[in-house]
Design a protein around this nucleic acid. Sequence first.
DNA 1: GAAATGACCCTCA
DNA 2: ATGAGGGCCATTT
Length: 111
Amino acid sequence: MMLGGEIDFSKFCADVYSVVQQVPAGKVVTYGLIARLIGYPRHSRLVGRAMAITPHDFAVPAWRVVNAQGRTAPIFPQQRQMLLDEGVTFTKSGFVNLKAHLWNPFDIFPD
DNA sequence: GAAATGACCCTCA
DNA sequence: ATGAGGGCCATTT
């Protein structure tokens, strides 16, 4: 059983991955947004930890996860090119253009 | 148990 | 844009 405040990390990871799997090609999602969507609004860092142990296969599109500034992951150098291959645009300074590519989880206004 | 660590987030200068 | 500083919180030293 989970004691107060503690987290079932394996379940947490499963929830994180289930969200990431819903992000379509050409869109990105942020750590903080994922954290809020799965009910752990203050755990953006833990989301990062979950992503760090994601196998580099195609089951979970980990490359579509960036931080709130549009920065790509420090330990994942290929990420930028992979996003470019999907048509994601970057600013001159190397940040993802979130205004254009941040995924809307509610899909109120489909593209 | 204290201190350091990290794919984070925010504000301000 | 860049950097500093504070806040955050589970995990690992």
